[in-house]
């Protein structure tokens, strides 16, 4: 058992494992997203309160859930990196940041598009939207700090500390903002979240959430492979990979002039 776990600390193994797993995850992800879209856009009935506009829920809620989920993954990976010095955990954290930021942006954009018909304005300082905005700033801060520190080892450690500080603060920030928004807007319009959801709407929503999660897994696996290749570029196992050491294809490369 421990031997099995230990293999996940070995870069060549993870590189090959991720390469073998990614196409399958990508395929299942596509199938689930398409069936979720079919059930959500065509089969599911319209909402009796919000009409057809509620269908934005099928992209807004998965994006919002993933935006927070990815940050938690990033923080857990950072903790693993700081405690056990596992380089792979740092690769996971680094690879997750841009994906999480893109989901956060998506949650904000679709939330704003949903807000226009529901609230009558593109932006409202609603507790959840404001929390998402602050989460986006946290992602930007993480990526900016990583980019600013030249020494790769200290960049990894400093970014990990920041991710942990962020994850500890997220609940505090979230509840402060919720409290603040109820203070300033006593009559907020509730979204779907507070009501019981009918299975004809719940099943497509569940499918979309799983689909988004698989998409995150797929992109994460590819980004991890990229990270491993970049960090281990001098290792002999990289030079021996069939996709790298292909004499037929490489003969083309050797002919060209490079700087």
């Amino acid at each position: 058992m421990f031997k099995w776990i230990h293999r996940f600390g070995s870069a060549p193994f993870v590189y090959r494992f991720a390469g073998a797993l990614a196409p399958w995850i990508g395929f299942v992800c596509l199938a689930i997203l398409l069936s979720g879209l079919y059930l959500g856009l065509i089969v599911a009935p319209e909402d009796y309160e919000q009409g057809e506009s509620y269908r934005i829920i099928y992209v807004h809620v998965p994006a919002a859930i993933l935006s927070m989920f990815v940050y938690v993954v990033m923080a857990v990976a950072s903790a693993v990196f700081l405690i056990w010095r596992l380089k792979l955990a740092d690769i996971v954290a680094q690879a997750s940041a841009p994906i999480g930021a893109s989901f956060t942006f998506l949650a904000l954009a679709t939330g704003s598009l949903w807000g226009k018909p529901m609230w009558g304005t593109w932006w409202i300082w609603d507790g959840r939207l404001t929390s998402e905005l602050l989460l986006l700033f946290l992602y930007f801060g993480y990526m900016a700090l990583r980019a600013a520190i030249e020494h790769p080892q200290s960049a990894a450690k400093a970014a990990a500390v920041l991710a942990l500080v962020g994850v500890v603060n997220i609940p505090v920030i979230h509840y402060s903002v919720e409290w603040w928004s109820t203070l300033h807007q006593p009559a907020t319009i509730t979204k779907m979240g507070e009501r019981n959801i009918h299975p004809s709407m719940g099943i497509p929503l569940g499918l979309m959430i799983v689909g988004f999660q698989l998409l995150y897994a797929y992109v994460l696996l590819i980004r991890m492979r990229t990270g491993i290749l970049k960090r281990e570029s001098r290792a002999s196992w990289v030079a021996q990979l069939p996709e790298v050491n292909n004499t037929m294809a490489n003969s083309k490369l050797s002919g060209t002039n490079r700087v």
């Binding site: 990508g26 994906i99 893109s102 998409l215 797929y218 992109v219 590819i222 980004r223 492979r225 990229t226 290749l229 970049k230 570029s233 001098r234 990289v238 030079a239 990979l241 996709e243 790298v244 050491n245 292909n246 294809a249 490489n250 490369l253 050797s254 490079r258």
Partner: peptide
């Protein structure tokens, strides 16, 4: 864009590794 960018970056990392071998 997420899928596409990650695949482009992977290809370019692979190309760098190939060039190093050559």
């Amino acid at each position: 864009a997420n899928v596409w960018l990650s695949r482009i970056q992977f290809r370019s990392a692979l190309l760098d590794a190939k060039r190093r071998v050559v």
